[in-house]
């Protein structure tokens, strides 16, 4: 039987039954911008960066199953404008001060902002007050940079079996919390060996005493734009994570 395919910006992409548009695009080395998606975890479609137009309708490509003959628009000015606006809202809601961030150059939020040529945050800054949690001996939590992708939540719950993290609150009040009575990471069984310690796409969960081991300017997305790294993004597993 002929393998089913769909068209991604006019390019035929083959897929297996049950695969999402994102899975198939990743396998075909075609880049769809995304933040909350990670091939190792169950997709949840919350960041909306991967929104594409499938047969004329806006859908999250990480949760939408591919269908034979489907026509998918991805890299279009209209979709990229919307994605840039989503990024701008994420930037102003937190405190994303790249020059002092250890994740700068390895950060997916920043790399996508480069990719989509976001030159300014456009909206007024919120400047929220979010104290850091430096209680854990090996790991620093800087909530200022959280984009609520829930990768740490999923990794800790589904892989580590610890459920150290969760999101709490609704709407603009939603925030990342730590599962301890004190709310401090030191009072959980979180460890640097956990999968959750290494999945943050931005600079919230950082290993202590390892800062700036690679100089700014020589990092992952300094070397090559994220749009040309789909192969690496698709191969993300516990072993190769930055």
């Amino acid at each position: 039987m002929k393998q089913p395919t769909f068209l991604l910006d006019g390019m035929p992409v083959p897929f297996e039954e049950g695969q999402t548009i994102m899975d198939a695009a990743m396998a075909a080395d075609a880049f769809i911008p995304h933040l909350c998606h990670h091939p190792e975890f169950k997709p949840q479609g919350s960041c909306k960066l991967c929104t594409v137009k499938a047969n004329g309708r806006h859908v999250s490509s990480c949760t939408m199953q591919a269908r034979d003959g489907m026509e998918v628009e991805n890299n279009t000015p209209d979709l990229n404008d919307k994605r840039r606006t989503l990024l701008q809202m994420l930037f102003v809601e937190g405190n994303h001060f790249c020059p002092s961030c250890e994740k700068s150059g390895n950060c997916m939020l920043q790399a996508l902002a480069y990719e989509l040529e976001m030159l300014s945050p456009h909206f007024d800054q919120f400047y929220p007050d979010r104290p850091v949690d430096a209680s854990h001996p090996d790991v620093l939590l800087d909530f200022n940079r959280c984009i609520l992708c829930e990768l740490c939540v999923r990794a800790s719950r589904d892989v580590d079996g610890k459920s150290v993290f969760a999101l709490s609150g609704r709407g603009i009040g939603k925030h990342l919390i730590v599962n301890a009575e004190s709310g401090r990471l030191a009072d959980t069984d979180f460890s640097l060996l956990d999968r959750a310690a290494h999945v943050c796409p931005v600079g919230v969960i950082l290993e202590k005493r390892k800062g700036f081991a690679v100089p700014i300017g020589q990092r992952l997305y300094d070397e090559k734009p994220i749009g040309q790294q789909m192969e690496r993004l698709a191969a993300r597993t516990a072993k190769v994570e930055v």
Binding site: F91, N95, H96, F97, C98, P99, S100, L119, S120, P121, Q125, Y127, P128, D129, R130
Partner: peptide, 18 residues
């Protein structure tokens, strides 16, 4: 033209905002 991080998003001086 806004030139540099501080003009664009407040930058380092804005770290006093909280």
């Amino acid at each position: 033209i806004a030139l540099g991080a501080c003009a664009v998003n407040g930058g380092l001086p804005a770290q006093r905002n909280h």
